[in-house]
Each structure stands twice: as structure tokens, then as C-alpha cells.
Amino acid sequence: MSIIGFLIPIALFLGGLGVIAFIWCVRSNQYEDLEGAAWRILEDEDEPPGQGPGRGGRGG
């Protein structure tokens, strides 16, 4: 049974990473424009670097 002493902390750690990643996504406005992202994938031209939705503050 001592295996759960390792497994549970590992599971919680990995899950915690997931939550942190999710909160980061929300913070950096990744969920701001769900419609636009679906169309952008069809664009051939690459965006200049550093133009993610996080930039440009709240206007995006």
C-alpha cells in the first residue's frame, strides 16, 4: 500500500499543473475570442512574433 504514498502526490501535482495552466490561459485572454481562432488557422501568412492575444491588453 505504500505505493499510494507516491502515486497520490504525483497525481495531485500533475492535476495541479493542469489547473495552473488553465488559470494562466484565462488570465492571458486565451478564451477572449473563440470564434476568431477557428478562422485564423486557415490563414497562410504567419503573424509577426509577439502578437498573441495577451498583448495589447484588454482591447483584443
Binding site: 473563440l34 470564434e35 502578437q51 492575444p53 483584443g60
Partner: peptide, 14 residues
């Protein structure tokens, strides 16, 4: 930068 948000129709230009 020029980015249009299609959900809110807001355009940000810098």
C-alpha cells in the same frame, strides 16, 4: 499590432 476579436468585433491597433 492589429488584432480583430471576432466575438466582440473589437479591433486593437498599436
Amino acid at each position: 499590432a492589429a488584432r480583430l476579436n471576432l466575438s466582440t468585433r473589437r479591433l486593437h491597433v498599436a
